[in-house]
Design a protein around this nucleic acid. Structure first.
Lengths: 240, 240
DNA sequence: TAATATGTATGATTTTTGTCACACAAATCG
DNA sequence: CGATTTGTGTGACAAAAATCATACATATTA
């Protein structure tokens, strides 16, 4: 998060641990499907027998409470792999995957993947890393949401948004993604109003600003202080 | 959680997905070590190059905030496997593992395990399941701590404690583990006082009681209602 | 057994967060 | 283009949870 190069990199995907060869092997068993904006790719509770490789669009992974409140785990961008598989110990999907925009997605059936994995320990290892990485996302989320209150959770979210969606400009960090106050609230398990008040307070303190209706980070250190960010997290997990 | 058989089973371990043969293979490369009560087995931030197979004792996995507040992820009991490995995508331990009692632990070095895994896809698959299970623990924790407030988090903790540590008797469910109010507070990211007040309120409502200083669940449904438990979680993840 | 440490119980107060209500701005759509 | 939907900004209030303080009870150990 320190240097402009990090901020300007287009996207942070979760498939960096795959070798080109192995990634191609996975791609060879994918069947490409389109999903319309605002449709669900799978629901929490569905039998988990497919993985999804996002080719185009944006997907969010979330969990609903009984009263309709959603907690958004993360957003996926192109080249991200998501989903769960019974052969990885997940009988049913734990979350719901939702197409935020129109999406093009490569669908990998468990049966086909398993055939690929069995004789290929290199690929198996890379899949372990992928599961480990997904697990780490959740751990970090848990920490961010529980340790420093809603202010900390929001601050951390803004910082993580800067990776993949942030661009350092003369007046601060601009975002190429435009999340509403409600979107941010769902990411931290809070309410629109609370998010709005926190953002206004930070704006009054000069830490953030608005440009064409979207947030600009003026004082990164101010935001980092709120969630006690020490730039210690590996880059690949510091993302939405 | 419905029937006495579930409650009375001694322990719920996280290695059920390993075949006897594979578990023995893992055991064959372990070096058994003793850890004293109140010592740490590893610290958050240490390079993660060992797995641990708990033979005797109790271990807790936790994360510390800058102000010293701890969040306890879970407790391990004999036959549980814990730890992280760089070859599974974890460069450094994400949490600290602490010996709650004197422990006997089988230590598995990454190098040795990797040699075992490479030619053995059956074992590799079982390790994927293990990583997936550990990941699921974290997901469930996230849900429990965020969806239904501190009351929900505590209720869910008491219910999960009932597996592995609960015994159904005439007057309700007794626990064989004795966690203090502070211990419970660390499990839900709250304070001793808040936990105490919640327990007192439930006691006044007749949902719980005390017997020789430890909690007895009189009305499981009352507790389940608080965290909206629908008995849908797979048994192997409904644990501390 | 007295002294100390550990744990429980509870009141008073403050801080944090959520809820409800409403005004208004901006985007979308028939 | 006017109507409707969607999003923002805030005040007033309520609820949840943390903090501070204090009184006891129960273990532990010197």
């Amino acid at each position: 998060m320190e240097n402009a190069a990090d901020l300007e990199q287009a996207q942070m995907n979760n498939t960096t641990m795959f070798s080109e060869q192995n990634l191609n092997a996975i791609k060879s068993i994918m069947s490409v499907t389109d999903f319309k904006k605002d449709s669900n790719i799978y629901w929490e509770g569905d039998p988990s027998d497919k993985l999804y490789y996002l080719i185009k669009g944006r997907v969010k992974l979330y969990k609903s409470a009984y009263d309709g409140k959603d907690l958004v785990l993360h957003y996926f961008t192109p080249n991200d792999l998501f989903g769960e598989l019974a052969c990885f110990g997940f009988e049913e999907y734990s979350f719901t995957a939702h197409a935020v925009t129109n999406c093009t997605i490569g669908v990998v059936a468990e049966r086909d993947l398993e055939a690929l994995l069995l004789p290929n320990s290199s690929l198996s290892f890379e899949f372990m890393k992928w599961i480990g990485l997904m697990s780490k996302y959740t751990q970090i989320k848990l920490r961010d949401l529980l340790f420093y209150g809603k202010n900390g959770a929001l601050a951390s979210t803004l910082l993580r948004m800067a990776h993949g969606y942030g661009k350092k400009e003369a007046d601060g960090i601009h975002y190429s993604i435009n999340l509403t106050n409600s979107d941010l609230a769902q990411l931290i398990g809070s309410t629109r109003e609370t998010v709005n008040r926190m953002l206004q307070a930070w704006k009054n303190d000069g830490a953030i600003n608005y440009y064409h209706g979207s947030i600009v980070i003026k004082d990164v250190d101010y935001i980092k202080a709120i969630c006690h960010c020490e730039d210690k997290c590996p880059m690949n997990i510091c993302r939405l």
